[in-house]
Structure formats: structure tokens, C-alpha cells
Design a protein around this nucleic acid. Structure first.
Lengths: 210, 210
DNA sequence: GTGTGTTTGTAACATTTGTTACTTGAAAAA
DNA sequence: TTTTTCAAGTAACAAATGTTACAAACACAC
């Protein structure tokens, strides 16, 4: 674990803090699709991502959902922090996008370190800022972009966090993430293929010029 | 100013802090439509609202905009705080919804008080949390609601912050806030009137059963 | 191989939202 | 009063998105 910590957080945190994290944090290896945090759950610890990626989703009363953004290694989920602070329930769902290694830090320590380590404090504040920006970007996406643009952006983002221009997914799954229907996704994907932006295969999509 | 502070923040802050705020903060009275913070602006201070309300907007590259939420008295704009912390430019525009009285706190003091006053620290963290939730609600609104529902929600929210069930505005202005066209707004308003939810007049709309 | 379930393609149609153009009506200015 | 300006109503049409239904293509188990 320490090795993963050092690679992703070494340049951010002082050695003492890294040591504390490796002593206190609980290492967790989750596979694709695992729900790290669910809506309504009480948060008792916050996750640091060592490798892999996490998809953050929002859900409405009817159970329809929508992807907000991806969180990558070297990051944490600031939404979780807000929940921790306020001792409230989670407003979002965090799903492992790929096989992912994380370290869970208990709230208590998290608050302790806020005072103890300058680097931890700025990391937390920085995370807040990043996540706020991601949320604004999510708003821009749903408010200002048309579905074909949203779809293309989604595919590129997904390719990025997976570090692979071949995306393994189905049209149905994409439709769920974007809160639209499978038929609409198929239609627009076909359009993107005609524009030479992607190449369609069964169960996978290849991005041209990522 | 102290009187306004006491009424809105008295139950939150200790007397010492209230006193410091009234000594250091700059009192400002702005009229409806005044741009308190604009996109791209460097933030040098954060606003506390004494009375009135502020409309927080987002804008895309093309200059189209969209309302995110209203901020009322007793609140601050957490987005501003994030920007302060990161020393970055504003991602949003804050416009006075009504005539509004605010106190501006310089960044420097704001950070100083984070360590000095427990109540200030929790106020800031609480604000973060509130704003995060507002942003999520804004996402829900644009992602999950249809235009007529968004419109109705907008009217109710606007009536709330203005403490008046008679909303003084034009269809054109509403269209800008919701990022749609005037014709669409007129159409849907007519529909809401037929459903007996509102009553239309020239330059104003009355909400039934607020 | 055959059957079975899943994924994708596609047509046809409905609904929602956006656009253009023009009219009506009210208020303000002359 | 008459003129002018602005807000609102409305029709007709265009585009985007959602829905239903069904067919074709493929993968996998048997």
C-alpha cells in the first residue's frame, strides 16, 4: 500500500503523513461495478484512490440516474468530505469504474490531520475546489450541450480514465449513465461513426483520435 | 450594520466575532440587478448577506446563461469561498435579486478566523455543504425535470426569496434564466395558468397556493 | 450443428423544445 | 390624442429527443 501511496500522493504529503495514512487507513481492493458509497449511506470514512477510477452518480426519486463525473487515482471524493463534515447521508453513489485500489481514512483522523498537517489541509481544500468545478462542468454538460455532444464527451472521458481508446460497454449502459434511452444512444453513436469520430463493435466502441 | 449582523448571524457567531466582522467588514448596499461578483473576476473578499437575496448564475462560452440557485440572507456564497481558497477566478456570476445589504469580508481575515473562531469554521464548512447540495439540486433540475416543471419550480423559488407571491418579471427574463426561448416560456406559462397554478398579468405573475 | 438470450440496427411515430414571423394589447412618450 | 415602444399571444414549422416494436447479428450453452 505504501508504495501506491508514495506514487500517487508522495509529492503532496510529507513522509510523516504518508506513514500515518499507511498505518491507519484500511486498504481495499474493489472490482469494477462495486458500489463504494451509496445514496443515503452514512459516511464513516473517506476514500483515497491509489489506482483505477470511480464513477460518481446522481439518482432521482424515480430511480433514474445520471453520471456526474469520474474521479481518478491521486484524488478523493470531496462530496464524501462534505458529508463527513456535516455528519449527513451521502447524496451520491460512487461506483468503481475499473478494478480500483483505495485507502479508507476514518473521519476522526481526517479532522485531526486537518490541524496537524498543512499538506493535508490544502489537499482537502483543493479537493473541494476540484469537485465544485466538476459539478459546475456537469451542469454545463446537461444544460448547454445536446445529446450527441454529451455522448461524445462521455466516451472521451471514459476512455481517458480507463486509459484505453477501446471502451467496453453496451449502448444500454451508456443510456443509463446519460439518462436517456438505448435507441437514442444507438442512433447518435451511428451518427458519430458516420462522422468518423468512433468505430462501433459489439460490446465495445473505439475512439478515433483521442 | 451590527444590528443586521446580530439578527442574521447572532445565533451563529459569538459576540467577539460579530464585533470583529462589524469592524473589519465593509458594508455595501446594492440594488436589484447589481453584479456582486462576475465570471472571471478575482475574488478578494467574501460576502455575507444581511438582507435581500442573490441569484447565482452560470454562463457558457456562447454567453448563454442559466440560473443555479438563489442565496438568501443569513447565507454566504460558498462558491466564492472555494475561489478564495484556491486563489482562482470566479466560475459564477452573482446578481442581486432584490435590493440587498451585504458585508464583505477580506480573504485574509476569513482565513485567520478559521483558526480563531470555532463558529466561523463551522459556518464556512456548513456553507460548503449547503452550496454543494444546491449545486446537486441544480443538476437534478436540469437533468430530470421537463421545462414546465423547471419553470414552475423557478417561479416558486423566486417568490420565496422575494417573500412575495407576485413576481415582477417578463417572459424574456425568465427565458434567459432558464436558458430557453421567450416563446417557450409564454407557452408553458399559459399552460400553468390553465392548470390554475398561476395567474398571468403584464410584467407580473401571481403564484396561486405558494 | 441448434436453440437461446443479448446486443444492435432501424423504422415509424409521439412528444418536447426551439425558431420564425406576425398580431394584439398595454403602457409610455410625444 | 396619437404615436411609439415593449410585452405577450399565437400559429406554423423545424429539430431534438423519447417510445414502441420488430428484425438482424452475434455469442454462448447445449
Amino acid at each position: 500500500m505504501l508504495e501506491g501511496l508514495q506514487r500517487n500522493y508522495g509529492y503532496l504529503f510529507e513522509d510523516d503523513l504518508l506513514k500515518e495514512i499507511s498505518e491507519i487507513g484500511t486498504y481495499k481492493k474493489v472490482s469494477e461495478g462495486f458500489i463504494v458509497i451509496d445514496i443515503g449511506e452514512h459516511i464513516k470514512s473517506i476514500p483515497l484512490i491509489l489506482s483505477g477510477a470511480i464513477k460518481v452518480m446522481r439518482e432521482d426519486e424515480k430511480g433514474d440516474d445520471l453520471i456526474l463525473y469520474f474521479v481518478e487515482q491521486g484524488d478523493t471524493c470531496a462530496m464524501t468530505i462534505t458529508c463527513c463534515m456535516g455528519e449527513t447521508k451521502s447524496e451520491i453513489r460512487a461506483v468503481a469504474e475499473t478494478d480500483t485500489r483505495i485507502v479508507m481514512i476514518p473521519i476522526q483522523k481526517m479532522q485531526e490531520w486537518m490541524h496537524k498537517y498543512k499538506s493535508w489541509q490544502s489537499f482537502i481544500l483543493q479537493s473541494y475546489h476540484e469537485r465544485m468545478k466538476e459539478l459546475l462542468e456537469a451542469i454545463d454538460t446537461v444544460a448547454f450541450l445536446k445529446m450527441d455532444e454529451r455522448l461524445y464527451k462521455y466516451l472521451r472521458d471514459k476512455a481517458m480514465v480507463n486509459r484505453d481508446d477501446l471502451i467496453k460497454t453496451t449502448h444500454q449502459e451508456i443510456a443509463q449513465d446519460l439518462h436517456t434511452s438505448r435507441v437514442v444512444v444507438s442512433r447518435l453513436l451511428k451518427k458519430l461513426e458516420n462522422e468518423n469520430k468512433i468505430k462501433l463493435h459489439r460490446n465495445s466502441i473505439k475512439i478515433i483520435d483521442l
